[in-house]
Every structure is written in structure tokens, then in C-alpha cells.
């Protein structure tokens, strides 16, 4: 905690007013941040009559999960009326390998770049780092061509490749920044003890890495799950990831607009990353700020 507050000792009255004001602002912002969540959940539990007749902010009369069921397994996306279910599994089978591959490659690359500095290692890192910030618009066209040539356009494999490659820049950055805090002497000691490149990685470096692995996994999972651009550019129909399918579901213009189903679909799409955030978010912050070796 910063000490700036601790050394202030204004008079009790003004202190109280300040405190009330402080809480007022904090709560107003909290309401603003929570409003969309409340509206989405609330709407998804109402039926259409209730939505049309009642207020956006009113609580639902009863817990009605039919919109959820509909969004999950019945809603029409394009011409297929399968609900989000198959697309959800598309996203899962795209995200898991993507996370694993980019994290593993990032860890090894970061390790080699920091602990086995070779000539040009810094240049290599700088070039990889810039990859984090390249606007993807500049790569989608050639990527579409390349995927076509390999024959994996419109498949989950294509998206796995895309996310592995463009995630690598970030995972390398994470691992590299973490591994520079591990003393080089550890690697030297292990070298003299007779351990080689992979043995040191496996026996010394990896056991020190859980905090940053958590960061990398959470980051990559969130990025891949939430991606829309690649999904929309490289897949159509049944191969789409859930974000694209959800957007199509919401923007389907045929028939009656089912706001409750739209919101339930949004909720289903957001659920995995939200759960990850709620249960593992603090490890993310901790891992980003943690040094590697204590003492």
C-alpha cells in the first residue's frame, strides 16, 4: 500500500466527507462496469414478452433458462440450427492446442534467448517482439493464401496454426522477461554439474516457471478464445469458432429478434474466459509481477 494516504491527517469532518465522496465515485464506476453484465444476464433469463413490456433494468420475474438452452442447442446460425454447441467445441479444440504449442515454444525460445545468449540473440528478440504489435490486417491476406496452399483453410487446424504463430511473440516476451530474472549463475552451476541444454531446462528452469506458465496460458487462452478477426477471415459455416458464430447468431435478420437468446449466446461465449479470470486472474497479476527466485 502506498504511504501517500497514511501520512495525511486532515480534520475528522473533512476526512469523513472525503471518504464518502471516495466511496461514491468507486461505487458509481462499479455500477458502470457491472451494468452490461447485469443487463446481459437479466435479459437472458426473461422471455420476449417480458423484454418488450418491462424495463431493461428490471429483475426477471422468474429464472427462465429456456433462452440458454435455445442458444446452446437450437438457435439458427446461418442456415444451420444447431445452437452454439458445435462452435463451442470448435473453439475448445482450437484454443487448447494453440495454448499448448505457443506456450511450449515460447518457453523454449525465451529460455534459449536469455540463458544461452548467442550472437544476434537481442536482434532475434527485437524482431519477435515487434510481432506482438503488428496489426493483423497486414497478414490476413497472405495467411489466407498460405492456408489454402497447405489445404487447411476452413479447418480448426488452420486456426491452431495461426494462433500458435501469432501468440508466439507474446509468449516469448513473457518467458523472456521472466527468465532474465533467473540468475545466470544457476545455469553455469548446472553446466559444471554436467547438465546440458534440455536437462537444465527440464530440471532447473521449468520447476521455476509455474507462475509465468500460468500467465502465458491465461493470456493465450483469452486471446485465442476471444479472437474474431482470424475466425471470420479463415473459416465459414461449421468450422467457425464461437465468437464468429455468436456474432452471426445475433445478426441473423430472419424471423423475430430474440434478444434473450442473443444475450444467452453472449453469456455462453463469454463464460470460459470469465471463469478463467475469476478463478485464476490473481495468479495472472501475481505471475506478471513475480520475480523468479526468492532469497
Amino acid at each position: 500500500m502506498s504511504d501517500a494516504a497514511r501520512y495525511s491527517a486532515p480534520r475528522p469532518w473533512s476526512a469523513l466527507i472525503l471518504r464518502v465522496l471516495l466511496w461514491f465515485v468507486l461505487i458509481v464506476f462499479a455500477i458502470w462496469f457491472l451494468l452490461p453484465a447485469y443487463v446481459v444476464v437479466g435479459t437472458s433469463l426473461k422471455d420476449l414478452d417480458e423484454i418488450r413490456g418491462g424495463s431493461l433494468l428490471a429483475l426477471p420475474h422468474e429464472l427462465n433458462f429456456s433462452a440458454w438452452r435455445h442458444a446452446w442447442s437450437e438457435a439458427c446460425i446461418g442456415v444451420e440450427c444447431t445452437g452454439l454447441k458445435p462452435y463451442f467445441w470448435n473453439s475448445v479444440s482450437m484454443a487448447l492446442p494453440g495454448v499448448v504449442v505457443s506456450t511450449l515454444l515460447g518457453a523454449l525460445t525465451g529460455y534459449a534467448l536469455t540463458k544461452w545468449k548467442f550472437k544476434g540473440a537481442n536482434l532475434v528478440f527485437a524482431l519477435i517482439l515487434f510481432g506482438c504489435f503488428v496489426p493483423f490486417q497486414v497478414v490476413i491476406l497472405p495467411m489466407a493464401q498460405t492456408l489454402g496452399k497447405i489445404g487447411i483453410t476452413n479447418t480448426v487446424y488452420g486456426l491452431i496454426l495461426v494462433h500458435s504463430v501469432y501468440g508466439l511473440a507474446f509468449t516469448t516476451l513473457f518467458f523472456r522477461n521472466y527468465y532474465v530474472t533467473i540468475p545466470d549463475e544457476l545455469v553455469r552451476a548446472a553446466t559444471i554439474d554436467g547438465a546440458g541444454f534440455f536437462t537444465i531446462f527440464h530440471r532447473i528452469i521449468l520447476p521455476l516457471s509455474p507462475p509465468i506458465i500460468v500467465v502465458s496460458v491465461i493470456w493465450q487462452f483469452t486471446q485465442i478464445w476471444n479472437d474474431f478477426l482470424f475466425g471470420a477471415s479463415f473459416t465459414t459455416g461449421g468450422a467457425q469458432p464461437i465468437t464468429v458464430a455468436m456474432n452471426n447468431l445475433v445478426n441473423t435478420t430472419t424471423g423475430v429478434k430474440q434478444y434473450n437468446v442473443d444475450m444467452a449466446a453472449a453469456l455462453i461465449t463469454a463464460a470460459p474466459t470469465l471463469l478463467v479470470y475469476i478463478f485464476a486472474g490473481r495468479y495472472f497479476v501475481r505471475g506478471l509481477t513475480a520475480g523468479s527466485v526468492k532469497g
Binding site: F33, L34, Y259, A270, G281
Partner: peptide, 30 residues
């Protein structure tokens, strides 16, 4: 509470705010 939007896709954010800003049924009506 302040941080959770970071975990969500822009697609979800857009969908949610679009609904809130719906002229006939959204916050305007409320």
C-alpha cells in the same frame, strides 16, 4: 469488478452495449 471486461471478447462487449443502446428497448427507454 473493474478488471473483468478485459477477459471478454470485444464481440461480447459490442453485443452487450448494442443491446443497452437499443433505442426502443434499451437504457433510453428506461
Amino acid at each position: 469488478i473493474y478488471l473483468y471486461p478485459m477477459a471478454i471478447s470485444f464481440i461480447i462487449t459490442g453485443t452487450a452495449w448494442k443491446w443497452i443502446m437499443n433505442p426502443s428497448l434499451g437504457l433510453e427507454k428506461v
